[in-house]
Each structure stands twice: as C-alpha cells, then as structure tokens.
Design a protein around this nucleic acid. Sequence first.
DNA 1: CATGAATGAGCTTTCATTCAT
DNA 2: AATGAATGAAAGCTCATTCAT
Lengths: 183, 183, 183, 183
Amino acid sequence: MSIKKDKVIEVATVLFAENGFENTSMANICIEANVSKGLIYHHFKSKEAILIEIFTQTTNQMIEMNENSKPSKDPKKQLLQLIDSVFSQIEKEKHLFKFNLNMMFNPTTNKILEEQIKLRASILFNSIKGIFNQLSIKKSEILSYIFIAEIDGIALSYLSSYNNYPLKKMKKELIKKYANYND
Amino acid sequence: MSIKKDKVIEVATVLFAENGFENTSMANICIEANVSKGLIYHHFKSKEAILIEIFTQTTNQMIEMNENSKPSKDPKKQLLQLIDSVFSQIEKEKHLFKFNLNMMFNPTTNKILEEQIKLRASILFNSIKGIFNQLSIKKSEILSYIFIAEIDGIALSYLSSYNNYPLKKMKKELIKKYANYND
Amino acid sequence: MSIKKDKVIEVATVLFAENGFENTSMANICIEANVSKGLIYHHFKSKEAILIEIFTQTTNQMIEMNENSKPSKDPKKQLLQLIDSVFSQIEKEKHLFKFNLNMMFNPTTNKILEEQIKLRASILFNSIKGIFNQLSIKKSEILSYIFIAEIDGIALSYLSSYNNYPLKKMKKELIKKYANYND
Amino acid sequence: MSIKKDKVIEVATVLFAENGFENTSMANICIEANVSKGLIYHHFKSKEAILIEIFTQTTNQMIEMNENSKPSKDPKKQLLQLIDSVFSQIEKEKHLFKFNLNMMFNPTTNKILEEQIKLRASILFNSIKGIFNQLSIKKSEILSYIFIAEIDGIALSYLSSYNNYPLKKMKKELIKKYANYND
DNA sequence: CATGAATGAGCTTTCATTCAT
DNA sequence: AATGAATGAAAGCTCATTCAT
C-alpha cells in the first residue's frame, strides 16, 4: 500500500478524533498529510470512505488479536488478563476510545459505520462469552453483558465526566470481584 | 417566554438528536419551527447558544428533581427506586440518552457544554453517594463510581451495539445485587 | 427636540466616525444610545437620514459661525486668525476631520451627502475669497484655492500618514507666508 | 499567475473604487469576473486579502518607478518634472486617487492597509526630500512636507468638492513657485 | 501516481426595516 | 413616544467533490 495513503489514514484518524468527523475537512487532511486533493480522491472514493477504512483497519486488528490469543486453560486467569489489558488500553489509548464513542453516537458516523459497530460488539461479546462459558454455562450470556457493561461504564466515566477518576481503584474492585468468582 | 422561542428550542432538540449538532443547519431549524432566520438570531446569539440553552434546561430539570426527591429512609429502597426510574427512563427516552452521549463525545459540542457536563456528573455522583453513605460510609465513594459505571455501561450497550439487548434481565440482576447488599 | 433623538445623533456621530457608516449598524446605535429600534425609526426615516441630519447640523453650525464672525478690518489679521483657528481645530477635533474625509470619499456616503459637501465647500471658498478680495482683487480666486489646498493638504498629511507630523512647524511656515503677504 | 486570479484583482479594483470596499460583495466580484465563489476563496484567503493584494501591487509599482527614475542632475528640473507627472496622473487616474483616499479614511480599510499606507507615505516623503536636499539641506524636511501638502491639497479639492476646479491654473502657480525657488 | 484550479450548494450570521402593541 | 418581535435578503465564507493536465 502506498506510503501517502497510509499517511492520509494516519492523519485523518488523529483529526477525526480531535475535531470530529464533520469538523474535519478534506482540505485539513490534505494539508496535514502533505498531499493534494486529487491524490486523496485517487485513493478514497469519499470522506466517508476514509472513515470506513480507518474503522475497518481497527476492527481487523481486533479480529486478529482475538484469533491469535491462545486461551490459557483457566478462565479466571483469562478474565483477569482481559481486565488488565483493557484497563491499560483505556489509559494508553484514551483518544482512541473517545474517537470510538464519538463515532458511535454521532448520528452521521453511526449510520456510516453501523455494520462495523455491530460486528465489533458481537466479536467482543462472543469472546467474553467464550470465557464465561467455562465458568458457568447457564448464565454465561447475562454474565457477559454485565462484564461488558462494567468495563464500558468505567471507560465512559473515565473519559467523559470526572477529573480525578479513580481508575486504579476501579480496576482493583473488578479484579477482586472476578478473582473470587464462580461460586 | 415567547412561544416562537420555545418552538425553536423544541425543534432544535429533536433535530440535534436526530441528525447531530453539526448536521443540523439553522435553515433546517427555521423551516421546522416555521420561523425566520432573523428571529432565531433575535432570540439566540448563535447556534451554540441554542445548544447551551437546551442543555441547561435539562440540567435544571435534573437539579429540580434532585431537590424535590424526598429520600425515603431506607437507603436500599432508595437504590432500588433509583434503578427502577433510570431503567424506565433509558427505555422511554432513548433518544435523549443518545443525544446526551452524542453531545458528550462530539469534540465540538463537548467543548461548548464542558461545564454543564461536569456539573451534571457531579450532581449525579453526589446524589448517589448520599445513598451509599447510609450503607457504608467508608466505601461510599468507590461504590458510587461502580454503581454509575454499571448504569452507564448498560445504557451504552443498550443504546449502541446490541439489537436484542436483555435490558429487563440486566435490571433484574442489578436489583438482585443491590437488594441483598451490605449483608 | 427630544432628548433621546439627540442622544441618537450624538452616538451615531461617534460610531460613524469610529467604524464608518457601513460598519455601524442600527442595532449598534440602539444599544449605545439606549434606545429601541422602534424609537429610532420613529425619529429617523432611515440610517441615511441620521447621517444627513448629522452632516446638516454641522453645516448649519459652519454657516452660523460664518455669519456671526465680525470681520476685523485688516485682511491679513483675518487670515492669521483663520489659520490659528483651523490648526487648533485640526488638533482638537481630529476625529471630526477624519469623519468628514471618510464621508467625502466613501462612494456610498458621498452620494448621500453630495449636496451638503458642495454647499460646505462653497461656503468655505466664499468666506476665504472675501478675505483675499481685500488683499488682491484680481487674484483672489486662485489665492483662495491655494490657501484651501494648503490647509487641506496639511490636514490630510497630519490625519493619515505621518506619525510625527510637524504640525506646529507647518503652522509657523503658513503664518510666515501670509504675514508678509502682498508686500 | 492564473488568468482568473488576475481577472478577480482587476474587477475588484474597479468595484472597490466605484462602490467602496464594504459595498462591494464577493458575489458582485464573482459575477463581474465570471468566476465562482469557491475559486475566489481558492486564490484569496478573504475579501481583505484581495484588497491587500491590490494595494500591494500598486505600492510595488510605486517602488519600482521610484527605483528606476534616473534623477536628472538639476533638482529644480526634477521638481518640475514631478509636478508635471503628478498633475497628469491626478487628471488621468482620477478614480485611482479617489480610491486611495477612500481606503485611507474608511476606518475598516484603513486598519487593513495601515502598514501599506505608512510605507507609501514614507517612500513619497523620502523621494521628495531627496530632491529638496539638493536645494536646501537644512530645510529639506519642512519643504518636503509643504510640497506634499500642496499636492495633496490640490488633489483633494479637485477630487471632492469643486465642479470647475482650475487644475491647470493651480499647476501653473505651483510651477511658478518652484521654478524660481531658492534664489 | 499526482496536482490544484474550479464548481456550486450550503453554511452561520448580520442587517435595515416593519409593525403590532 | 416607545418597545422589541419578526422578516427576508444578502453577506462572507467553507466544503466535498470533479476534472483537465
């Protein structure tokens, strides 16, 4: 793939995250990516197409990671590992999480990315359900929804409203809960 | 307050929710509210000002409701009442919740509404902490954050990703958790 | 005349001078004069009408001053008095001179005030010619034009371009020239 | 430089001169230049930028002319040449002189062009002072200011107020004055 | 693969003016 | 004499997209 195309993707990701999809113009992207308008339309059909490609790339990474993860036998261990990786991601890639939430709840981008969003949700859900199946087959579905809600809720609070959100304490509480689980 | 101004607010609320802030033009609002452009700018300094007024009105309603709620003595009962009212709101006012999430994570509107968003969060937090204080003074803070995360997380899942989200079951689980709390 | 009407004239004069005619809105005038839009249109047919009234008032003052000036016998003395008064006006009422030049060379206001501008010019010219008639009947016309050009040219330089314009020295030179005149 | 850009400059110059800066809309320019709005904003950052470019071009022409003028040895001859060229310009390019005066005394354009205006004034002043330096080193400064005031004053009278201004006679008077100078 | 001139619809906002009260 | 709600045209400007080169 062309270097310039990659640069466009990279720059657009940052600008969409910082300013939102509608507040980022193709001209902005051109300038920042040091690329002409003609070229950007050579690589992408439209502004929407850039957004779709960005989102798809990340989704594909998610899928790949999911496939490559060798489940350790112990489901509890898996859960704790998952919690650990999610929390470190929330902290490290704050802007990516904000970007995703923005794209999910902006009516315009939501329509564009609808399928992708549902796909991601089902991948996540199935991955987590796979773990809970090992703990409690009967309740694995509802347990997965609860787990996802807890994670998402913490992320939402952390990213939006609270200045000194006790992210570390929240992680500890979650670990405490799921370390003793299964009874 | 003038009837036409009210109409503008009402129409703008719907359009912002349906199409997003940036994708709603003043012309759209004019047509839908059956009002001239001049008049909108007679009543509102700018498009931003409309958004702020909408948000402030809802915030004020929150504050009022909060002040008028006579806390029943039993904190558990309060919690269960709160859960009940939140879940029925999530279902009934789906579009309002989506609108709020959109405004919170759209960089443009987030900047405009920053203070309001923080104010709302602190009102909610203090209100919930007030309940948990009665159950467990020491851990009331972390418990409040967990409770809020659970509620927000469920709302987020319900509103965004999942087609047949088991909202009722989630409510049941939450009630189960908090009905037996602190024992 | 109504106090509020006077206030409008006063405020409009300042705003037109500071921001120009086209850059001063009726709304600006209303706010600054603490008057409603309805009232301003009760007193003045239009924005143009305000400008015309402002200009007419000043013109009338010029006429009045001209009529009331009792010419001392000695024309040279008159000239020197005139120079003195013009220079002190240029310095004291800088903004009024700028305003007049603006109104004269702005195509919009020039059209509105055309007659007034010509009237003023002829008043000034005749008044000065009256003086020079006493010094040299034959050349009084051309002498008047020269005198006016000198005054206007100095004013123009002082008001527009030069930061440290030697206004005092220029006055001295002019006085020197006309004190020894015709000998 | 693009033909269409040149056309915009050309059209804008005429329209600004005829109707003033504020009374010339971008739409006016588009229609007259047979060009789309988008294109104008492709070539110029703003309406102000067009004005600045127009003014700068003329300033640069002034500078060029100034540099290319080979001073004949005799300063008196130079002065008379200057007078001759200025008077023929005043007559031929009446609209350009009016335009400049408009831009100088309109508060909006004055702010935009402040630096340019000062630059032009200093170029003119230094050029004239260079001549007077050869006639009378000590008084060259004040003599320059007087000369400029005379020229400007005549132009001002001619362009603004008087219907049958004796421009030719004024030129003759000026020539008479400076032909016999310094004796 | 690459440029940037060119379009035209649409954007937010301003404004002089009118009119019912 | 006084208010301010209401209008509608027009302003400056932005933008996604196209296309000749």
